[in-house]
Design a protein around this nucleic acid. Structure first.
Length: 492
RNA sequence: GGUCCUGUGGCCGAGUGGCUAGGCAGAGCUCUGCAAAAGCUUGUACAGCGGUUCGAAUCCGCUCGGGACCUCCA
């Protein structure tokens, strides 16, 4: 759909840029996936919801998208006393499980969470452990091009040499001299520093200590890949040497994404990505979310309410809605108040969607429906502004309710249009869904029968019976509403 | 210490040099047997101090908060 002027903020330029895909009609998108060594938590929800919506929107616009999101199951080092030990290996030892058992368990947990959040499956979900060969080949290319060197069984990227002719630091806004100087006075003693020619160099391949469980043979001896190389190798394999979009959290800008750029340029001589997109972080009650503060909340704990900071359970759609109410480049603060407000707002939107299905048209329209549709598109085209999109959808909800209440009218043509785009935006693009809908035709038939008895009681002014039915239905989770057109029910 | 981002009404959260965000909560009214839902009305915010401007919450500077990253840490 070339009529749309989709603009997105490119981290490379820090400006909104018009989006144009490399191959017309097709988009290649890579998003950094999770390291599967623990339960998926709130921090995971944001990037994957954000890029899921982007994926949905691009698809809606008519692009054929290949969405690649990796599973990191090797290579990350633990930055504590057990330095050098693979994160996954460490967890495995603690739980007496095989490393790949851990990987499998948490990969499944991750998939479950993504499913509950209504994130569509990605097209390719490559695992780092399944692409060791590709990573080794890429490292060999980088060495052959003179941008990396071997040192005691490990391979390091030669940042200083590379930066003489390349703009290392452009993406993340770093200045190489400052990195080298180590400006801070609280710099950590990093493992392996002695092997490096320069502190700014980063590992492409690490030699495995004898006790290291996850290891693979390589031209440089047994070891495991560095943190950054997997994304470079896998994105190149599935999307090509240069592709359209690379997404991830802002915390990955440096060093992860900066290093990816350097690795790809070092191997292929080309910039790997046209548009870098980064979502902002999540805080809880105004505080940074972090392990040290003990305010990391797993998604499962949100869904069940089983965390001491949570006053109640929050459904996956409540989480999704809350995240979409903020722009993806703004920090978002999770609080019980905010989540409760989101829960009610979402419910208002979902009720409107239901009401819309049984809306009837009139002779004229009191609202400008085509303009609202246009406004929704404009908001999405403006750097994926889901907050504004939602505000327009709430305006739609107001109109739907007003028409239903009889204070406004809508023509058949406008009603058709409204049904189409409201449904499209709410469900297909934003990926929201109704969570507590009916319980099948049997239950509906049963409810209709009970409600008929109640309606008869009301007609006979037997309000004690009608209220009793209402109360008892409420007690088992069915909420009913008396409307002009009859009585309707929903599940709590 | 460095780089970058950020500070909006009771709460969450958009946005723009002058004109309405939106949601939640609150108040009043309407509808209703009562509820619920819904509709209408209502709030006059933009951290502080200077500056630029006819005009700034929106641009600039400083101050004070908050945050991310600073080499293997989503």
């Amino acid at each position: 759909m070339l009529t749309h002027q989709l603009h997105i903020t490119n981290s490379l330029s820090r400006k909104k840029e018009k989006f144009e895909s490399i191959v017309p009609g097709r988009v290649g998108m890579y998003v950094c996936g999770p390291t599967v060594y623990g339960h998926p938590h709130l921090g995971h929800a944001r990037p994957y919801i954000t890029f899921d919506v982007f994926y949905r929107y691009l698809t809606h616009l008519g692009y054929k998208v290949r969405y690649v999101r990796n599973i990191t199951d090797v290579g990350h080092l633990e930055n504590d006393a057990d330095s050098g030990e693979d994160k996954i290996a460490k967890k495995a030892r603690l739980e007496q499980l095989e490393p790949m058992e851990i990987v499998e368990l948490y990969t499944q947990k991750f998939h479950e969470a993504m499913h509950l959040l209504n994130n569509l499956p990605v097209n390719i979900e490559p695992r780092a452990s399944g692409h060791i060969i590709e990573q080794i080949e890429m490292i060999k290319s980088i060495i052959a091009n003179g941008w990396a060197y071997e040192s005691k069984g490990s391979v390091y990227f030669d940042v200083v040499n590379y930066s003489k002719t390349h703009d290392y630091g452009k993406l993340s806004g770093r200045v190489i001299d400052e990195l080298i100087a180590g400006a801070g006075n609280e710099r950590r003693e990093l493992e392996g520093q002695a092997e490096k020619r320069n502190p700014a160099d980063f590992a492409l391949w690490k030699k495995a200590a004898p006790e290291h469980i996850m290891r693979w043979p390589s031209p440089w001896g047994d070891g495991f890949p560095g943190w950054h190389i997997e994304c470079s190798a896998m994105s190149t394999k599935y999307l090509g040497e240069t592709f359209d979009i690379h997404g991830g959290g802002m915390d990955l800008l440096f060093p992860h994404h900066e290093s990816e750029v350097a690795q790809s340029k070092g191997a292929c001589g080309k910039a790997p990505v046209r548009y870098w997109m980064h979502n902002n972080m999540i805080t809880i009650n105004g505080q940074k979310m972090g392990k040290s503060l003990g305010n990391f909340i797993n998604l499962e704990e949100f869904f069940t309410g089983s965390h001491k900071l949570l006053e109640q359970a929050y459904s996956p759609m409540t989480i999704r809605f809350f995240i979409l109410q903020a722009h993806y480049r703004s920090p978002v603060d999770f609080s019980n108040e905010g989540l409760k407000a989101a829960e009610k707002g979402l419910s208002r939107l979902m009720n409107a969607a239901q009401t819309l299905r049984r809306l009837t048209s009139g002779a004229s329209s009191t609202s400008d429906i085509p303009s609202l549709q246009k406004a929704c598109y404009e908001a999405m085209d403006d750097d994926l502004n889901t907050a504004i999109t939602l505000s327009h959808l709430f305006e739609c909800a107001r109109i739907i309710n007003s028409v239903h209440a009889g204070t406004e009218t809508i023509t058949a043509a406008d009603l058709e249009l409204l049904k189409n785009f409201f449904t499209e935006f709410v469900f297909s693009i934003l990926g929201l869904k109704e969570e507590s809908v009916g319980g099948g035709s049997d239950i509906d038939a049963l409810l209709q029968m009970i409600l008929k008895v109640r309606t008869d009681a009301k007609a006979n002014k037997d309000f004690s019976t009608s209220d009793k039915i209402r109360d008892e239905l409420a007690a088992i989770g069915f909420k009913i509403k008396d409307e002009k057109s009859g009585t309707s029910w929903t599940r709590e």
